[in-house]
Amino acid sequence: MGILDDLRQSVIEGDRDRTQEFMKNAIAANVPAEEILKEGLISAMAEVGRMFECGESFVPEMLIAARAMKSGLTLLRPHLIAAHVQAVGKVVIGTVQGDVHDIGKNLVGMMLEGAGFEVIDLGADVSAEMYIRAVIEHHPDLVACSALLTTTMLRMKDVILALDEAGLRGRVKVMIGGAPITEDYAREIGADLYAPDAASAASRVKELILGIDRP
């Protein structure tokens, strides 16, 4: 196997130590930073997402894979900057106001990072005003809203209305997700995208923002 295959496999297996070792080897071997990113990290996380979507892996496996990916990305980042490699897009993500459940949101953020996006995580209990401020400051391609409760999912509509009122709705796409959310609800409140889980969130965002078909 080549060095990038080793790197990719170590991320899939969530083996942080080996990921760092292979990343250092790839950098030392002068493999272009963008190639390491795409073939070693993004490709690995796409496979992790595929395995999650088809029930071959679950949240713990996704978490350790994302941790390995991040540890490799930290080593790679200076080389990406030096090579002027940009993120494929930018996402502002948060759990909506009144809701402090954040593991689903965190998983979506990790999978989007793993797909090459820059992710600005606003945390939990995020008001519509906070989303607006973040959109103005960061100019994201997508705003992602999470909610676990039927009592808080209604706040997603407030975010979309606030984007409308601020004249920002045309600039960003909106994705929503969380246990009680459905495709119908997303359509009803005017969201652009719904995803039932973290893995499909990443693939659907790629499809929407980058026009890349899901595997």
């Binding site: 029930g55 892996s57 679950f58 949240v59 713990p60 496996e61 246990a179 039932p196 889980d197």
Partner: peptide
């Protein structure tokens, strides 16, 4: 559980 399947999966 989660909305689809077990949080930690059946193996764990």
């Amino acid at each position: 559980g989660q909305q689809r399947g077990l949080q930690m999966g059946p193996k764990l």
